[in-house]
Simulated scan of single mutants.
Amino acid sequence: MKIADSLYFFMRYHNDVPKEWTNYYGSVYRCNHPVYRVSTLYFEHGKGLCVIQQRFNEKSKTTYWGPIDPWLADKIYLHEGFKEYFDHHAKRRNQNGEYPTVTVRQIMWALRMKPLKKERWETVFDRSLI
């Protein structure tokens, strides 16, 4: 009985910040998108896909969208399903300098990755591109 109880203690249901991580893939991209000003851009062969993550400003008690956590950029890019997801969703930059955009939760859900811990202040978009 004690062995079974201890197994549940070590199970992780959320993605946590690892002790060691790299940040080679994805770059910070600035544009005048109506939802955000800065995102993480995955770019390949003239096509790009922006990924954004929601943040909370303690001082003003407001939320805003920005680039994803740097420790998460490589984890997403190196996932086995990323290439297929990128090929399906990535497009060339439009006239306003914007690429198709998804939230970090949308891409993690699509890739079947463990989700980030959801904060109570987070809002969501529907499942379409932003």
Rank of each mutant, 00 (worst) to 15 (best):
G26M: 06
R12H: 09
R120L: 13
S128H: 13
L41H: 09
D74C: 06
Y99G: 04
P115N: 01
D69W: 05
W71N: 09
N57G: 08
L49V: 04
Q95V: 14
G97C: 06
N23H: 13
V102C: 07
T22S: 14
N96D: 15
F86G: 02
K47G: 03
R30C: 09
G97N: 05
I52Y: 03
K118S: 01
P115R: 00
L49M: 07
I52L: 04
F82A: 03
T103C: 00
E20G: 00
R55I: 05
A4G: 04
K83M: 11
L49F: 02
Y24M: 11
M1I: 07
E20W: 06
S6T: 11
E98R: 11
N23Q: 08
R120C: 12
D16C: 00
N94C: 15
K59C: 05
H33E: 11
I52M: 03
H33C: 07
K118I: 06
H89Q: 11
D87L: 11
M108V: 02
I76V: 06
D5N: 12
G97Q: 01
F43D: 14
K75H: 06
F125T: 15
F86M: 01
W65S: 07
Y29N: 06
V102I: 08
G46D: 03
A4K: 14
K118L: 06
W109V: 07
F43T: 09
F82I: 04
R92G: 07
L7I: 15
Y29R: 01
T63W: 09
M113W: 04
A4T: 12
L129G: 08
T40E: 09
R92S: 10
Y8Q: 10
H89S: 03
G26D: 09
A73P: 00
Y29Q: 03
K2G: 11
Q54R: 05
K59P: 00
D5Q: 11
W21N: 01
S6M: 13
V51S: 10
H89P: 01
A110K: 08
G97M: 05
I76C: 02
R105S: 13
E119T: 06
T22Q: 13
V124A: 12
L116D: 02
F86Y: 05
P100F: 03
V35T: 10
H45F: 11
F125P: 13
I130C: 11
G66L: 00
L41T: 10
H79I: 12
I107D: 03
M11E: 14
H45P: 01
D126P: 14
V104F: 00
E80N: 15
Y25F: 15
P18N: 03
K91D: 10
G81T: 02
R30F: 10
S128L: 12
R30G: 05
D87N: 14
L49K: 02
V38F: 00
V35P: 03
L116N: 03
S60E: 14
S39I: 01
F56L: 11
Q106E: 08
Y13E: 02
F10I: 10
V104H: 05
Y8A: 02
H45G: 09
T22P: 12
